[in-house]
Write a protein that binds this DNA or RNA. Sequence first.
DNA 1: TTAGGGTTAG
Length: 467
Amino acid sequence: MTSNCHAMAGKKFSSYHLAAALRREPDPAAAFQLFLNPPGSATPSSAPFRYSLLCYDLIISKLAAARLFPAMESVLSRLRSYLGPRPREQLLCRVISAYGRARLPAAARRAFAHPAFPEPRTVRSLNTLLHALLGCRAPLRDLLAVCRDAGIPPDACTYNILIRAAAASGSIEHARHLFDEMLCRGIAPTVVTFGTVVAALCNAGQLEDAFEVKQMMVSQYDLLPNAYVYASLMKGLCEKGDVDAAVRLKEEMEGKAELVLDSAVYATLIRAWFRVGRKGEVVGLLEEMKGRGIVANCVVYNAMIAGFCEDVRDPSAAFAVLDNMNKNGCKADVLSYNTLVAGLCKLGRWRDASELVEDMPRRGCPPDVVSYRMLFDGMCAAGEFLEADKVLGEMVFKGFSPSKDGARKFVQGIEREGDAALLESVLCRLARVNALESSGWEKAVSGVLDDPTEPSLEKHLDSIRIA
DNA sequence: TTAGGGTTAG
């Protein structure tokens, strides 16, 4: 189609045309082919195609978003020898984030140092890398090491990520220390910093401290608490069982003109309402939302799905919510499905859960590692080890591994059933995805080794050790 | 797509 256009225009297909074609092409693999072979470039007499930086930018962004990493890396290599304006750091950030979302921390680190991008790095790509590593659950000390090695002066954003990493690794003390350090270095905390600190304190159950921080941001830093701060506090109160206090906080928000209630605030309350058995009042909350012009998003629907599954133990009602959200133009996300899968498994309905997981790709939402782990655990809990084994095969094929706990229960269950051949094959597969604790498999394996009918296991043991 | 909340699991 594209080549026809330029032939009709009687002009050479330039990088300008290529950029337009890349923008139009929805299929990233097709866009990659277009980039490699621009129309007209194959004619023997023609000079090499002259790419513009925009073409590189477009194709790299597209491939990054589609997680077509080998293709993306090959373009990055070409970009390295590209003689033209140097690419912007924003593009590098996109590449790093894509690796972070794919949970590939080593690749994210390599990208940060990629020679296609001109030195020096600014704090912007440093922060992107830190955020990517945080998403990969890298420990705080790794993040601190990255900061030290980069030698880039941190900003408030850097500290916000580090504080969140400290809280995620369970150390409020470290988070506090980082906050103090940032003050010492003359970096002013922002409303985001306070949002992070309040959330960390609430998650740790330190509500009094969290409220103190809310006061302090006003009195000492002249910053107003926003909906993020309120949502964290409301969730913290609900978890302590003080739903009424959470409602009072919502009323406090309503009294402040500068504060806008949003869907997160309602999702928090909806979930809490279900937990305390006030599901009848949820409809009222939804209507109130509507009245304020707040559109229910995935998070709100997911809170309802969780409520119907966990509290009402009524998966059909949860399925109805799923249908409803799709009708209302809100595409169910992986969390919606995983919540349902968890609910079905908890009710022992692993067959229904299995059907739902199988149906997810058709519904436009491929299962993730959590979907598989929950289904696997649900089958193990039901004593359905052969079914669990099938799921395990599919998981391993897709590069996912079961949780350590799930793998342990699975191995113990198969041990109890005494199927040595199955146990052997299972241990090898688990070892391949590194889902075995050494003590766990050693114990299980030694049990089988005592069995003289199972001589081939030693061979597999060696392969496990090498892996 | 430089940072924070809210819905699942662990």
